[in-house]
Design a protein around this nucleic acid. Structure first.
Lengths: 335, 335
DNA sequence: ACACGATAAGACAGCGCTGACATTTGTGGT
DNA sequence: ACCACAAATGTCAGCGCTGTCTTATCGTGT
């Protein structure tokens, strides 16, 4: 068992016969070190297995690390992961690393988790807001930490945000169905973030209003009870008297449920989901798609921009969506 | 624009009229602070929006942070994400946070990325090895940083590891096919990690050898060229003269490809995939499944154990797999 | 031979925090 | 009144690094 402890700048300096500042210069990349000295230092460092301590460096440099935090509700949703992937990519290009934390989708733990991250002096904070109120972040924001809210706008906090084109995306989907003649269109959404759900629902209603369908209450199946599966919701919708001839899904879970139920339904019910998913193409499921990784990249870019210029106005960006026709959304109503 | 800078222990101490050490005690949770003093300190801290600087704390405490690094090849593979989710969960319970970094599945960047993480003094390093050689980590390991290799064993490095029961899982799948009478069984795998692929292939061969099929070369479709999609590989397999009556998939990508090709194939070809996936149940695809999150949790637990007792022998753990019958794997050979 | 600027290297303090140790204050026993 | 002892608080140095400033060294033009 090797008990030698970690080498420091000073150790390297001693071995190389120079001052610790010189070693620092070598590793910080700053100039004014002669080639021979540099060689000697690097040799010594290698021999001692020296690795600069970023903690100390960060502290010295003013107490900020080079990590950016991303706070997620639930890690099991593939959506979040793709966003995280986008963030990670974009940050890596600027030499920053991402730390990931989850709040288990419970509002109470949000502040606790965020606090722990801020204590680590993250450079910026990206989060998918879960709590009803992010005003607790205002102090931090004023101290210069960029706060970017992702997928949903923050509440009671002036922060940059990136969200999807929820309303228009959903409206487009519904319009494409009404154009085929559908009028009885169901809306299914499993418990989903209030914000995105509300927006998509608004888009749905808007598009139906355009063709004169005003009362959509009986077609809306929005269960906020997590115990009710998307599958059950779809079934319930279809089992009522005078069932819808088409259904739109409010999120990716709804799509999974719909696929299970609608596969061998007769007469065929048209379906358009929100959020693309693996095999959707093979299954011929039409969806409102968008670039999930781009959502993350954009969020990361916003953070970087604000880091570069803290005085800019806050921005609210939208990631475009587009309707992909694959068959399930092109089924006409039975006549 | 508020230009006030971040408050420090000393600032709080001044405002509360105590020494900075007392403030430190309040925030470090250590005892021996009278209730009144504590109140006064907390009040002052609140007023100044004080947040302890974990960087400084970590440095002072011996230079290790409370983060654990997880190094992934490619973030887009859902498999990795579930593993990450498991790790995050397990670590959170011990108050540690996870930093995620990717190597883009290129061996060269592995060492660079790992180095950057180690410079941040992560408490432990979990990684999915990509490079052929992890001996560069030996020094670090000797300095006491637990190194856990996930999903594949590390090469040239004495490290704990958690892998799947690859060989047996695949052998079970093939045995279940041979029991139905299949003898011409194809093996498809997209470029996959060499290790898991090799193991699964070995399991496949082993099970076929048990029923007297010795030469399996013509049924093995292992393209290491990423340009060849799993879909093409499956097609190529079926288009040859005397095609297989059943196929096993070597990884999740192979399953996606197989589903696309096999859906309306006549006569039906049996299929069993490795790795469960969303909708596999709805589609009736039999798979060799395992608990992906558990893989992550186990890895994290290993790290925690080693942190607690560095002198223990290294462990090699296996996550069990189990065959799930859903129909596609129960199709008998045509007669 | 001399002054002069450029280059290389070092001395020193201090980032924010906490461990080790010192000091003050309060309590109870005799 | 005195001492022993615990609880509450303070002093000080230093974790590993780098910014600022200072000092030594060298080549160059006149």
């Amino acid at each position: 068992m090797n008990t030698q402890s970690r080498a420091t700048l000073a150790d390297v300096a001693r071995l190389a016969g120079v001052s610790s500042k010189t070693v620092s210069r070598v590793f910080a990349g700053a100039g004014n070190v002669s080639p021979e000295t540099r060689e000697r230092v690097l040799g010594a460092a290698k021999r001692l297995r020296f690795r600069p301590n970023n903690l100390a460096r960060s502290l010295r440099r003013g107490g900020v690390s080079n990590t950016v935090a991303f706070v997620i509700g639930d890690l099991r949703n593939p959506f979040y992961f793709h966003v995280a992937a986008g963030i990670e990519r974009e940050l890596a290009e600027s030499g920053l690393t991402m730390v990931l934390a989850t709040t288990d989708d419970t509002p109470e733990s949000e502040e606790i988790v965020v606090d722990a991250l801020l204590a680590q002096r993250v450079r910026a904070l990206l989060l998918i807001p879960v709590a009803d109120d992010q005003s607790y972040l205002d102090g931090e924001r004023q101290l210069g930490t960029p706060v970017i809210s992702v997928d949903r706008p923050a509440r009671n906090l002036l922060a940059d945000s990136v969200v999807l084109q929820n309303r228009q995306g959903m409206a487009d989907a519904v319009r494409s169905l009404t154009a085929l003649g559908h009028r009885k269109i169901g809306f299914v959404s499993n418990p989903s973030a209030m914000y995105t759900l509300r927006e998509r629902l608004a888009g749905y209603r808007e598009a139906l209003r355009e063709v004169g369908v005003m009362d959509t209450a009986r077609w809306e199946r929005v269960d906020d009870d997590p115990a009710v599966s998307a599958e059950q919701a779809v079934r319930a919708l279809l089992d009522q008297a005078d069932p819808p001839t088409a259904i739109v899904g409010g999120n990716n879970r709804a799509s999974a449920g719909a696929v299970r139920v609608l596969r061998d339904r007769e007469p065929a019910v048209a379906f358009i989901g929100f959020d693309d998913f693996e095999l959707a193409d093979a299954l011929g499921i039409s969806v409102v798609a968008y670039d999930t990784m781009e959502l993350g990249r954009t969020a990361a870019r916003l953070a970087l921009e604000r880091l570069a210029d803290p005085s800019e106005f806050t921005k609210q960006l939208e990631i475009p969506t587009r309707l992909i026709h694959r068959g399930s959304g092109e089924i006409p109503p039975p006549r």
